[in-house]
Amino acid sequence: MPEPSVDTVFGDLQQEGEELDALVSSAAPSDWARPTPAPGWTVAHQIAHLEWTDRAALLSLTDQEGFAAHVQDALAVPESFVDEGAAAGAKLPPAELLQRWRDGRLALTRACRQAPPGERFPWYGPPMKALSMASARLMETWAHGQDVADALNVRRQPTARLRHVARIGVRARDYAYLVRGLPAPEREFRVELTAPDGADTWTYGPPEADQRVTGPALDFCLLVTQRAHRADLAVRAEGHDADRWLDIAQAFAGPPGAGREALGGPR
């Protein structure tokens, strides 16, 4: 599948943020205290995490020394720094937290557009170009937005923006093995995903590959962001290596997540 254009990535990032913004803006202040599927995290924690991570991304793009110091602070408490960042923001009044998140989104998008296209910027995982940083922020916004939607009992309509999430999930295949200390398969897999409109198919990898993954793009994105258990999704693997990957896939940087418990059937 061809790489998306610069305007497409930045435009989709803005739209993803605006969609989640509309969801939480319409929620009552008491709804921000609702628990989400992430243990110990409320709706406020989810938005606070996005605000906190957007600030970290902005720091990476504009002050690499400052970001390096931030990473050292994180390494001092590797098991808790993400939760601590979310907890600190979740203590704010919802209106104040929402405005901080809005301001941070705007600043980050501006910094991404102004960044030199070929330069790579530090991150918790491998360094990334600004365009990849924007795609990663979209992925995180969508994933944490799913937690918010689940908490508020809202069923979101999947959009073509999921192609960014799917692409990251495919490209992060070897990283999922790396963070688990496992050797990655030597050959590429073929991944074929049915787009949300039901008309298109998003394809990755050589068509002749004997290891294959197929299914709805939404389900694949839920899998690689660990927002649903594999048993509850219509994602299928052909081949031992592909099957193993679906058990460990992750689209996000950092240590392996705990994932979600199986609910007992497709969503």
Rank of each mutant, 00 (worst) to 15 (best):
191 V>C: 11
143 A>D: 01
36 T>D: 04
226 Q>L: 01
244 R>I: 00
57 A>T: 09
164 H>L: 09
149 A>S: 10
212 R>D: 08
243 D>P: 00
31 D>M: 12
76 A>M: 03
199 A>Y: 03
115 A>F: 09
179 V>A: 13
126 P>W: 14
163 R>M: 08
45 H>W: 07
23 L>P: 04
218 L>D: 01
188 E>H: 09
94 P>C: 03
97 L>K: 01
64 Q>A: 14
44 A>F: 01
112 C>N: 04
50 L>A: 03
171 R>P: 07
99 Q>H: 13
252 F>Q: 04
124 Y>A: 15
206 P>S: 09
214 T>Q: 07
218 L>N: 06
261 E>L: 14
210 D>E: 15
52 W>L: 10
263 L>H: 14
182 L>H: 08
256 P>F: 12
123 W>H: 15
42 T>V: 02
80 S>L: 14
253 A>Q: 10
104 G>F: 01
30 S>R: 14
228 A>N: 06
242 A>L: 06
118 G>R: 13
24 V>A: 10
24 V>C: 00
103 D>V: 09
186 E>M: 11
176 A>W: 04
125 G>C: 06
182 L>N: 00
4 P>Q: 06
171 R>T: 12
264 G>P: 04
224 V>L: 05
49 H>D: 04
45 H>C: 06
87 A>V: 01
188 E>C: 11
103 D>G: 12
203 T>M: 14
238 E>T: 10
105 R>V: 00
115 A>I: 02
91 K>P: 07
185 P>Y: 15
231 A>I: 03
22 A>V: 12
158 P>M: 12
248 I>V: 11
208 E>N: 11
65 E>Y: 15
190 R>H: 14
202 W>V: 03
82 V>A: 13
8 T>C: 04
176 A>F: 08
224 V>R: 05
180 R>Y: 03
123 W>D: 07
76 A>D: 06
89 G>C: 04
231 A>L: 12
192 E>D: 14
264 G>V: 08
156 R>F: 05
47 I>H: 05
7 D>M: 13
106 L>G: 15
61 L>R: 03
197 D>Q: 10
